[in-house]
Design a protein around this nucleic acid. Structure first.
Lengths: 253, 253
DNA sequence: CGTATTATTGAATACCATCAACAGACGTGG
DNA sequence: CCACGTCTGTTGATGGTATTCAATAATACG
């Protein structure tokens, strides 16, 4: 094996493990950074082996240390009440960041667990924080990501506070469909990584209600359900049901 | 009137209108800043005359321009769904900041209206953003405030997703009681600035259910209700009902 | 291929929303 | 000062939506 071969292999490895070449680059933090800045950001990132379903990134009560960017798979965040039951507070999908809720309290107030094989980039917060002092655009990115999360929480609060089962499910399906996904996936066809139980928990419904409501939406011809594979047939009707509002969907782009 | 008099008056005015002398100083943003930094922060703040109940700070859809720190009174934030009904998304009380949800989208996704006479400090965001580039501690403050808001949203999502009426009200009362308040006010005695209707809207309940549930809590001897004046008699019992969890109350201080 | 997990559907119940009537507070103006 | 209307809050009766319990079907996994 000559030097050229080695270089080529190194280059390939670099492509797979650097922000610069990451397919999610435009969705994750480094957007709007120049090449030098991306490299500096890249240096603090840890990319570990993929984690399996059931493995935790962190647990409620752990000392806060890092944010995590999700590259593939799905992370669910949840918190346990004293009554013992869990409330799922979100699902992290590729390109998204989790862990924001721990910055202020120094402790993760939620647990994060993979619900399928998942790979993440770990962003140690102390180093990241220092970097934001030197890179104004990175600071902006972080603040905007935090703000976006708050805006999304508004949507969820609206959903939990006012909507009925059909409205919640419609909103949920449209939200999942609108999230960034690997190239080639249509936004009319989604494969849910989570169970009915987990959907219900997240939406404040019983799993049976989720099942029933999906069946109803299928009867009405708005979706086609095949286990966790869901085809969206009537996107306009779903939007009408969920109550299209200023908070839904992606930012005002 | 001589120079000394004028100086004294100016000093008094300064005391009433500078962050340095503000009684909320330790709760609002300028905490952890040194004197010079506070002055620089102070310079970008606008302090307008008090606004009356019903006046808006901003409306859903307005271009985002400022954050607002609440000095006295109460601001409710809400958003209107297409179905026309409103969902109250939060109540801003003295020392708290509102407007975070607009940073990312450049547009306020909610409206903010005073529900009693209220005075606020307006923090123009573009100037503030520049200042955070130069003052690392101010940047940290902002990020922590955003993170805290996200953590609080977790609490509300847990409440709306899993709790029954009594648990919601207990949680709500404890939350209001735990918020920073002017010196002299006991945390066992609260005066609610909002109506039953607004409480219900915020908690995802009907106003009648709020009324009934408060009556029930009073029957059980946990609180004493006199219109909007509420005395907390059994704080431990209320905590037990609301389901004390890692998210409740103030940060882990 | 068998067991465990997940999903669907049915029936009964519980909780809260809705509708409605009434009581009290507040402010206005006669 | 009191009559009046409005707004807010309380309480009762009824009904709807989603939960719970239970049984069955389908899927995943070793």
């Amino acid at each position: 094996m000559n030097d050229l071969h080695i270089k080529a292999i190194q280059l390939k490895a670099f492509r797979e493990t650097s922000c610069q070449s990451c397919s999610l680059r435009n969705f994750c933090l480094p957007v709007s950074l120049d090449l030098v800045e991306i490299e500096r950001f890249d240096e603090i990132i840890t990319r570990s082996r993929p984690i399996h379903a059931g493995e935790h990134l962190f647990r409620q009560g752990n000392t806060f240390s890092s944010l995590f960017a999700i590259r593939s798979g799905c992370i669910k965040t949840y918190c346990l009440s004293d009554h013992g039951d869990e409330q799922i507070t979100g699902f992290g999908l590729p390109s998204e960041l989790i862990g924001f809720s721990g910055i202020d309290s120094k402790i993760y107030p939620v647990s994060a667990v993979a619900i399928k094989t998942t790979s993440v980039c770990e962003i140690p917060y102390s180093k990241f924080d220092q970097l934001t002092d030197q890179m104004s655009s990175l600071k902006k990115q972080l603040i905007h990501s935090l703000s976006k999360e708050i805006r999304n929480d508004l949507r969820v609060k609206l959903l939990l506070g006012k909507k009925n089962a059909a409205e919640r499910l419609s909103d949920f399906l449209l939200d999942i469909a609108a999230r960034p996904k690997p190239a080639g996936y249509s936004c009319h066809y989604i494969v849910l990584p989570m169970s009915r139980d987990e959907i219900g928990n997240y939406l404040g419904l019983a799993a049976e209600t989720v099942s029933r409501t999906l069946s109803r939406l299928q009867q009405d011809g708005l979706i086609k359900v095949d286990g966790r594979k869901i085809e969206i047939l009537g996107i306009a009707a779903l939007k009408a049901i969920s109550g299209p509002c200023i908070l839904s969907g992606q930012p005002y782009s």
